[in-house]
Computed example of a mutant assay.
Amino acid sequence: MIWFDLVTPKSVMFFRPFIDGIKARGKTVLVTAREGQGYKEVVDLLNLYKIDFVNRGYFGGANLGDKLKASIHRQLALMEYIEKCSITKLICLCSVDANRVAFGLGIPIVNFYDIPLSDHTANFRKALPQARLTLPLSTKAFRPYMVPQSIFERFSLESEQIFSYNFLDVVAWLNDFEPDIDFFNDFLKTRELDVSKKTIVVREEEFKASYVGKKYPVLYEGLELIKQNMDVNIVLIPRYEAQPLKKLFPFATVIEEKMVIQHLLAFADLFIGGGGTLNSEACYFGTPVISTRSFISHYDKLLIDAGLMEKADTPEELLEKTQQIISVRRDPRPLFDTMSFDIDSIIEEILR
């Protein structure tokens, strides 16, 4: 039995084709997940895409002590469940709890990771906590091509344990996705938004994550400036609870239900994102993108260098860039046409 531990929205999207491909090879798959107060996005996505899963543990929130307590409890819950299963391999995006349980039970670990460092120019001391707690435990580790192998080797991995793939992670689930303009228009109409206005879709940074740790003002103050200076539709995709955003931005439309958000990313006039995955998705569609992330990862730099994404570091800069590039579509083909999504060879290496 192959075990997938999916604890972030991205892990659900990324591993969907891998789960299907492994099942098609006659293998049995177990998917575990977690949720928590104010954090249901993973479970909602699993239900949306009809992926069977077992829920074990909960999200610890923003506080480090609460995170540690939740992690300890989840590791125990996972261990008690997993040791009753005939698991032959763990596959995940560097899930800390699953890595610890698999390592303790002698289960081979296959880790995928595209952000081992919080800055593309940083040294080893800038390694993210997840990378430090998981990559050294890997039996095999997979990296996207823009992250240098030398970085993975710093985590005590031998070169023969490290495998690269020639695509940005979002290609795994977007390569056969067809965006629907009717979905986008229906979304605007059902929320009584003015279809004649330009639409900006927005996503917060993962401020409760251990590698961010706080809210940075650029996005929040920048949205106030945009509202004061531009007559546009603003649609917010919550990262955590929806209600705080509704109170903070009464002028915006806050999405509360789970939907195939990629249709909105594809046809928005601008996407402003504090994270990585939705930024990359919007770039894939050629939508103009402004990153308000508090750091620049290797794949962020790839998108910026390709002219597909801008970076704003102050509220004023966010307003200025918004006014400059809204509705200015980008051509993603020069970058994404160089990539190849060869899932079969990756699955073969995973199972080998």
Rank of each mutant, 00 (worst) to 15 (best):
V12F: 07
D331A: 05
E160L: 07
F152E: 00
P332V: 08
M230D: 03
L137R: 01
H73W: 03
T8W: 05
A98V: 00
K27A: 10
D194N: 14
Q324N: 13
I296W: 10
Y58N: 12
F14M: 08
E224Y: 14
I181P: 09
P129F: 00
L168Q: 08
Y58I: 03
K126F: 14
L133S: 07
D180V: 00
D231G: 11
L78N: 07
L319V: 05
N229V: 07
T32Y: 04
R25M: 15
N111M: 06
S156D: 14
T32N: 08
D66W: 05
M146A: 13
R352Q: 14
L30A: 11
D331Y: 12
V254T: 13
K10Q: 12
E256A: 12
A24R: 15
C94V: 04
T292Q: 10
K50F: 12
K10T: 06
A33N: 09
S95P: 07
I226R: 02
E256N: 15
S138Q: 02
L264H: 04
D300N: 13
K247R: 14
V218A: 02
P9N: 00
D337C: 11
L128R: 04
D305C: 08
I346L: 15
T314E: 09
L318P: 03
D5S: 10
K198D: 00
S95K: 06
R143I: 01
Q75M: 15
G286C: 09
N166K: 11
A127S: 13
R293F: 13
D342H: 13
R25W: 07
I325C: 01
Y220D: 05
I304K: 00
I51E: 15
N185D: 09
A33C: 12
K84A: 06
N99S: 15
L308V: 11
D313F: 13
L193V: 12
K197T: 03
K301L: 07
L6W: 08
D119E: 14
I237N: 06
M259N: 11
F4K: 06
T287M: 03
E281C: 01
T314K: 11
F155V: 02
T190Y: 13
A70T: 01
L245R: 06
Y39G: 06
F177C: 09
I107M: 03
V7P: 02
V212G: 01
I290D: 01
F142N: 02
E281W: 03
C283F: 06
P332I: 07
L308A: 03
E256K: 14
E204F: 09
F285I: 05
E310V: 09
R125I: 14
K40F: 08
L64T: 11
F184D: 01
F155L: 03
G286K: 04
P9K: 08
I2Q: 04
V201R: 05
K140I: 03
F59G: 04
V42P: 03
D114N: 14
S11C: 11
E316K: 14
